[in-house]
């Protein structure tokens, strides 16, 4: 039996009613391992205006590079109740900020190793289907250079849109999303 998957639609302007009751700002809450970090940024539309009605979801491995789901069959330890899932709306200025632990490396296609990264799923009013993008880390330059997914981006000038920039002397990263124009964030078709 083959069915047609249900069509996607926009979260609309009142997304907060449906999607913030289970919001998660502190992914690190249940983590016992790994470096605690804060990632902050803003979401901008094609006119450079902040997007106040977006929602971001994050998904990442724990510090050992293991995802907290039976779908991950790697022989690596789980970290207690750490889920690796976050969900936050943007504020009136399009800002977002969340706390997590830096994920470990996970396997990629074939025998490759993926650099530490966080999957980001982007929803907003005006968007009929969510978008996938990723956050990598500026202090992982060697791993990023060998990452099989970053390697798919032919225009090297676009790669920095996926790299969270570490603030000197702090466990904080800055990462923005730009929907269009100069510095348009790389989004993936997967």
């Amino acid at each position: 039996m083959t069915l047609v998957p249900t069509a996607s639609s926009t979260v609309g302007p009142y997304l907060h009613i449906g999607l913030t009751p289970l919001q998660v700002y502190d992914i690190a809450k249940d983590a016992s391992k790994g470096e605690k970090i804060v990632i902050s940024g803003r979401v901008f539309d094609g006119e450079g205006q902040p997007v106040p009605d977006a929602l971001l979801e994050f998904w990442q491995a724990n510090a050992d590079g293991k995802y907290a789901t039976p779908e991950d069959s790697q022989d690596k330890p789980l970290d207690g109740k750490f889920t690796g899932f976050g969900r936050i709306p943007t504020d009136k200025e399009g800002r977002f900020s969340f706390t997590t632990v830096k994920p470990g490396a996970v396997p990629g296609p074939g025998n490759t190793l993926q650099a530490p990264h966080i999957l980001v799923c982007v929803f907003m009013r005006g968007m009929l289907k969510h978008l996938y993008t990723r956050i990598y880390f500026s202090d992982e330059a060697a791993a990023n250079a060998n990452d099989p997914v970053l390697g798919l981006i032919e225009d090297a000038s676009r790669k920095p849109t996926l790299i969270g920039e570490r603030t000197a002397g702090k466990a904080e990263y800055r990462w923005d999303i730009r929907m269009q124009g100069e510095g348009e964030t790389v989004f993936f078709d997967c």
Partner: peptide, 28 residues
């Protein structure tokens, strides 16, 4: 026709990528 999509849809083509362990897992 859905006006809000005009300034919020990516202009550049999406980068096609294989589904890795990251994409093939999710919260329980």
């Amino acid at each position: 026709p859905y006006q809000s999509s005009i300034k919020r849809a990516p202009n550049k083509p999406l980068i096609r990528m294989p589904q890795t362990l990251t994409e093939l897992t999710g919260p329980v």
